[in-house]
Amino acid sequence: MDNEKKLFQQIKEGNKQSFEKLFRFYYAPLCHFSRKYIADPDECEEIVQGFFLKIWEKRSDLDITVSVKNYLFSSVRNRCLNYIKHQKIRQGYKTDVLSKNNSQLNPDNYILEVDLHNKIREGIDSLPPRRREIFILSREEGLKYREIAEKLGISIKTVETQMGQALKDLRKKLSTYKHLLITFFLNIPGMPCRGNVTVKCQKSTKPKGKN
């Protein structure tokens, strides 16, 4: 978002529209980010909403020295870690999430450019229904090809073909888009699991009850 410092200044002065703008821009990214720490999406939403309420209540005392984006993401991370600590106290089990996930913070992995957002929605909507279903099961739910095949009662080969076609369709749709043209990451061999792929790995530990 442009001019975040200015926006934050307006929030400090009690401007609710600015606050809403900040909320709308960052809500989903922060929820999605907190899933890295907490499996339950409802808990994530609670945490992020509570955090925004706190910002509004304490707005006049807030002083941000880093970028607004980094402030938001690191605060939400701290809240998630606190939440985990309390869970630990309540349930009395040890978890290594705290040490494991405290490493680096990369907010940009969770923020999608607005125009790209619309483009992707168009792209996904234009896929044939079956292909779209398979693609979503793979990319959102993080299911393996085998799991998708079992779930839909189709062959793994079909899943492979549909995923290949979905990739072809979507890349074509997005290839004119500057973000895809300017940068590309090719880490061959052994393309590591990173970015959203990391999130996907996390999710697969707790499949959601969709469909």
Binding site: F23, P41, H117, I136, S175, L180, K200
Partner: peptide, 24 residues
């Protein structure tokens, strides 16, 4: 570009689960 496509669509689907309107 394909990797980026997968990455961005995955992110889109991840973000799309959250209903910002009702949260607001």
């Amino acid at each position: 570009q394909s990797e980026k496509t997968f990455e961005k669509t995955g992110l889109f689907l991840g973000l799309d689960q959250y209903n910002t309107n009702s949260a607001w």
